[in-house]
Design a protein around this nucleic acid. Structure first.
Lengths: 140, 140
DNA sequence: CCTTAATAGCAACTATTTTGCGTTATTTTC
DNA sequence: GAAAATAACGCAAAATAGTTGCTATTAAGG
């Protein structure tokens, strides 16, 4: 299936409008193997757009369970497509992330499931994130 | 042992100067059960100080393995005391963190060790972080 | 004491993200 | 289809976090 078609379906199925930018953003995420910062996104977009537009699109996607966010080591937000089965407030994003200390890129390790830990009853758990830092293949 | 004495020892043993602010900062961290943002720290300090001073103190502590940092969900940096055995570039900070979605506070779960995962040889691992989100006891 | 090197504090700057508001354009409805 | 409704865009401005350069202090060691 073509990425454009998938992007269109993603938007429609979440009641969002199919605008040029949003379609392009989604296609970029589909082609990317790692999480992207707003910065990265700006560079990958054909035309230049207002950052506000990007932020609003990304937030909307996040609220609708299309994307999920993780801050990188320095605290900047990065976004990546959710696996299927995400819904806005109940992210099933239970895979680990790897962030390269050299190139600072975030890899979504879809096949690395996050192991559980024992947690005291004092805490009511909603979601978990597992992030590894190190050096990726490219940078070794 | 009094917190002041501990703070003094921490500074001296790392070759740092025992200034008023730094002693106070360290004591605040010793009394706090959760990780603090620069913002929190400002409120907890008796007198008001320049934010730059706080940032520089915190960075210095981090480099010397006295504190470690974790970004919270929204990407803001939070700091907490390291367990013993941390050194500047080889943090042994292998415990999990819990961040409350309500009050946004970060709890250091010193006794919850981070479990390992299998990682492809493509990645060279340096450090790991495990963060849980949910609702803490206070907020339930 | 006196030196010197670390630290504090001020000013200014960069980067990220958010908010308000008028305009544009996609959807919906007739 | 055309008009109405409203989601999304884009500009301006501002809030927030963190950094850098520089000078003034001050702790530590002779």
């Amino acid at each position: 299936m073509k990425t454009l078609k998938i992007a269109e379906d993603l938007l429609t199925s979440h009641g969002l409008r199919r605008t040029q930018i949003r379609l392009e953003i989604l296609q970029i995420f589909m082609k990317s193997e790692h999480a992207l910062a707003v910065n990265d996104l700006e560079k990958l977009l054909k035309a230049s757009h207002d950052r506000v537009t990007l932020y609003r699109a990304l937030n909307s996607f996040e609220e609708n369970g299309i994307l999920h966010q993780t801050p990188d080591k320095s605290g900047n937000m990065r976004y990546a497509l959710c696996a299927e089965g995400c819904s806005g407030h109940d992210h099933k994003d239970e895979h680990a992330h790897f962030i390269c200390d050299e190139c600072n890129q975030t890899y979504c390790l879809q096949d690395v499931k996050i192991p559980d830990v024992k947690l005291s009853d004092d805490y009511q758990l909603n979601s978990v994130s597992y992030t590894m830092n190190g050096v990726c293949k490219e940078c070794q």
